[in-house]
Design a protein around this nucleic acid. Structure first.
Length: 744
DNA sequence: ATAGGGTTAG
């Protein structure tokens, strides 16, 4: 049989090697076979197929048992341009006594792979076997893997080993990667300590430290480091400048950004395309589209990132036409560009536009949707309450065999929760085994918005059993759960434990939640006291919560106070006026209502029109108050008449205190109330949704008490489940009751 | 043999 590899690769000429002896101890860790023709072949090998042929031949002649030769094979299979980590690992497992080089090669390959934990596992295995010890070529990659994993405790342990291991503790590569690791874990003080204690620092040390500060949200520190670098006569390079630009973008300091741009030109910094893209990005972040455009037109070479950076800049500034025309003119539209447009629409509260771009992408098939696309599309569905489309995307993910990452899992849980199917959200949550803090937080939020406060709290506790540390958002969600379920004691207790147990200083949002919890429970005095004694300035959310509580408990004086503070902070906040006028209307103070209306008109404010939407057969239908623009309008109004008759029959009298507009005539009032957007949507739902399916409605404002009462009755009279999402939470109407137990 | 870099996501 012909030797297979000779058909592909020429065999080198020197042939004077003794046959490798697998048992001989003398060859272990020796470079004895360095110039063996097969080993030399590895260096010129170009594909995994060729490598496998060499591997086979090495096994045949026994060369594979030589650790040095085997390590060359590992290097090629794990680190070359044609590398295959799975294959490399399999080869590795066959090596009788892998040398340090082999261990390092695999640890390195895994550290920059999708699966950095493998790098750490390899490292631990190496320690356990105890034959080889980590070197200065090992640590940089284990630190890199630990940084990716945010494995702070593990990395700290490594740091200890480095310090004990003397010579590695002085290696500049090891220390630079250590700085990077601490910075990535958010421990900038530890990173800085390492930096300060270094005997010698190079430009990479400075760059790593500056970027660490910039990314960690300490832009000022980053810029200070840059200045100090100049004072210590360390020449910055292009990487330094990118770190500095990142800091400018965070600080939104256009003047300094322009200075940096000039500095780059003045100091002969290597002008790479990457660097220019970073300058573009900085100008866009600092809000100077003009500077960005000027540079963009001057740039000789542009790549897809340059175009996408412009696209994102326009879209974030709300100039969607310009963003769209970038997408149309850029030479190749990769998925990142589409994602940028979809995400910009979604983030600016334009979910319908986001979904229409998503739809277009699928029709023209210029690029394949990826995880980012799907996360954005799911968020748009969540905003709209479009459960059909959201469910379709879920099926698509399964069909395409897309692996769920935490971003996707979170988006799915959020989508199902916000579309009213908290059971599906829970199913999703239970079906995954990798859950980061975002996944847990989303599930806590889902339970919270459905008024399942006790379950939210127990999930919050379970999360800690799973050793996932709650963050500031998790705490907002769990406090919110307490407020929606009237869990006053629990809420108070969690709030008081925040700093000591969770290490999170309460922010404005946390205070707002507690005010809400206390206020709803009628503890207005305590809520007021809390606000007066807050160590931070109460923001709009805090006054809003107080105002909401006043509405529930009819405290006019406090309401006026809260409303005034709210309007001081947010002159354009019509919600505040509406709430106050709500309170006036409830106590029949129509003069005050009209005065407030006048004030709003003078400020040019309009009440945000109530709008309800309902998805039927994947199409989202929207209704405004008294809307008759729907194609099936006649049928809807006929249904409304029928509903009114049936309600009257069971003795229902409408609750007129809910009328926000000052309407003089009695029957006009009743009409306005009967034509609230959620009632139109409910009527349409009764006509169009199959009886076995719940009627799901999304309202942009809070549901009014009359509509709430009507929904309860309808659920009983028509034996239908109605799931209504308002601005605040969910209401599940079933058999004449609501899941909120009339507490909202 | 090694460390640091630009666009899109919850």
């Amino acid at each position: 049989m012909a030797t297979p590899y000779t058909q592909v690769l020429p065999l080198p000429r020197h042939q004077h090697f003794p046959k490798p002896n697998p048992i001989s101890k003398t060859v272990i860790n020796d470079r004895y076979f360095e110039n063996h023709p097969l080993v030399l072949l590895i260096d010129i090998c170009q594909s995994i197929k060729q490598l496998k042929q060499i591997h086979a031949y090495m096994l045949r002649i026994g060369l594979f048992s030589d650790p040095f030769s085997a390590s060359k094979l590992i290097e090629a299979s794990s680190l070359s341009h044609f590398s295959s980590l799975d294959y490399a690992h399999k080869v590795f497992d066959e090596i009788p006594q892998p040398n340090l080089f082999s261990w390092n090669a695999l640890i390195r390959a895994y550290s920059s792979s999708q699966d950095p934990i493998q790098s750490i596992l390899m490292f631990v295995n190496m320690l356990c076997e105890g034959r080889e010890f980590p070197s200065k070529f090992t640590y940089p990659f284990v630190f890199k893997a630990s940084a990716k994993m945010k494995a702070l405790r593990f990395g700290r342990g490594l740091h200890g080993m480095v310090v004990k291991g003397r010579d590695v503790g002085l290696d500049i590569f090891v220390l630079n990667s250590l700085i990077h690791f601490y910075a990535d874990c958010g421990c900038l003080d530890a990173a800085y300590l390492v930096f300060e204690n270094m005997q010698t620092r190079d430009v990479v040390s400075w760059n790593t430290m500056i970027l660490g500060f910039a990314e960690g949200g300490y832009a000022d520190e980053a810029l200070k480091m840059f200045h100090r670098m100049g004072e210590e006569n360390v020449r910055p390079n292009d990487v330094t400048m990118m770190a500095v630009l990142s800091a400018c973008g965070k600080k939104l300091d256009l003047e300094f950004g322009r200075w940096v741009h000039a500095f780059i030109k003045r100091n002969g910094i290597r002008e790479s395309l990457i660097l220019y893209n970073a300058i573009l990005d900085m100008y866009m972040k600092c809000g100077s589209i003009e500077d960005a455009e000027r540079l963009f037109h001057k740039m000789g070479e542009k790549d897809i990132v340059s175009w996408t950076t412009m696209l994102v800049g326009y879209a974030r500034a709300g100039n969607f036409n310009a963003a769209r025309s970038i997408l149309n003119t850029m030479p190749s539209q990769d998925i990142a560009a589409w994602n940028a447009l979809i995400s910009a629409y979604e983030q600016s509260g334009k979910p319908k536009e986001a979904l229409s771009v998503f739809n277009e992408l699928q029709l023209i098939k210029k690029a394949e949707p990826d995880e980012v696309t799907l996360v954005c599309a799911l968020s748009a569905c969540a905003q709209l309450g479009a459960i059909d489309l959201g469910g379709w995307i879920h099926v698509y993910i399964k069909k395409q065999g897309i692996k769920l990452n935490c971003h996707l899992t979170t988006a799915l849980i959020d989508m199902y929760s916000k579309c009213g199917d908290v059971e599906k959200a829970l199913e999703m949550f239970d079906s995954v085994n990798i859950r980061d803090v975002f996944v847990w937080s989303a599930m806590v939020a889902g339970l919270a918005m459905h008024g399942r406060g006790k379950e939210a709290i127990s999930l919050f506790l379970k999360m800690q059993e799973h050793k996932v540390k709650p963050n500031s958002v998790t705490l907002i969600n769990v406090l919110c759960a307490c407020s929606h379920s009237g869990l006053v004691e629990e809420g108070r207790a969690i709030f008081n434990q925040m700093e000591d147990i969770y290490g999170i200083v309460p922010g404005v949002k946390h205070y707002a939640c507690l005010v809400d919890i206390l206020g709803r429970a009628g503890e207005l005095e305590e809520a007021e006291k809390l606000i007066n004694n807050m160590p931070i300035t109460p923001g709009p959310s805090v006054w809003g919560a107080l105002l909401g509580a006043c509405r529930l408990h009819g405290n006019l004086e406090l309401a006026e106070q809260a409303c005034n503070r709210l309007v001081e902070l947010e002159p354009e906040n019509h919600g505040a006026y509406v709430l106050l006028s709500n309170i006036y209307a409830k106590s029949g103070k129509w003069d005050e209502v009209s005065m407030l209306r006048k004030r709003m008109r003078e400020c040019g404010l309009k009440k945000e029109p109530g709008c309800s939407s309902i998805e039927v057969h994947s199409i989202v239908h929207e209704f405004l108050v008294g809307d008759n623009s729907h194609p099936q309008s006649q049928k809807i109004y006929a249904k409304l008449d029928e509903i009114a008759a049936r309600l009257k029959h069971v003795g229902y009298v409408s609750n007129k205190s809910q009328i926000l507009q000052l309407v003089e005539e009695e029957d006009m009032q009743e009409q306005a109330l009967n034509l609230h957007s959620e009632k139109l949507a409910m009527a349409f739902g009764l006509i169009s949704v199959a009886p076995s399916q719940p009627i799901r409605i999304v309202k942009n404002l809070r549901v009014c008490a009359d509509c709430h009462a009507v929904a309860k009755l309808l659920s009983k009279l028509y034996n239908r489940e109605i799931i209504l999402r308002d601005r605040y939470r969910f209401h599940h109407f079933k058999e004449g009751n609501c899941s909120c137990k009339d507490y909202w």
